[in-house]
Simulated scan of single mutants.
Amino acid sequence: MIVFEVVKDANGWAVRRDRTMMMPASCRDAAVAAAERMVNACARHGQIAQLHMVGLS
Score class of each variant (00 low, 15 high):
M1K: 10
M1V: 14
I2P: 07
I2E: 09
V3T: 12
V3Y: 02
V3Q: 07
F4K: 04
F4L: 07
F4Q: 03
F4V: 08
F4H: 05
E5D: 14
V6K: 04
V7C: 05
V7H: 03
K8W: 10
K8N: 14
D9K: 14
D9I: 06
D9F: 15
D9A: 14
A10S: 04
N11P: 01
N11S: 12
G12M: 01
W13H: 10
W13S: 03
W13I: 05
A14G: 02
V15G: 01
R16W: 05
R17G: 02
R17S: 03
R17I: 03
D18T: 09
D18G: 08
R19D: 08
R19E: 13
R19P: 03
T20F: 15
M21L: 15
M22R: 04
M23R: 05
M23E: 15
P24L: 12
P24N: 14
P24K: 07
P24R: 15
P24Q: 09
S26R: 11
S26P: 05
C27Q: 02
C27D: 06
C27S: 13
C27N: 12
C27P: 01
R28P: 09
R28A: 11
R28T: 08
R28V: 06
D29C: 02
A30V: 05
A31N: 03
V32I: 08
V32R: 11
A33R: 06
A33P: 04
A34H: 10
A34L: 14
A34V: 07
A34R: 10
E36R: 06
R37K: 09
V39Y: 09
V39K: 10
N40D: 08
A41D: 14
C42I: 04
C42W: 06
R44F: 10
R44M: 07
H45Q: 10
G46I: 04
Q47L: 14
I48A: 08
A49W: 02
A49M: 00
Q50K: 14
Q50V: 12
Q50P: 04
Q50F: 04
L51R: 04
H52C: 15
H52K: 08
H52N: 06
H52P: 00
M53T: 12
M53P: 06
M53I: 13
V54F: 08
V54L: 14
V54H: 09
V54W: 05
G55D: 03
L56N: 07
S57K: 11
S57C: 11
S57A: 15
S57R: 15
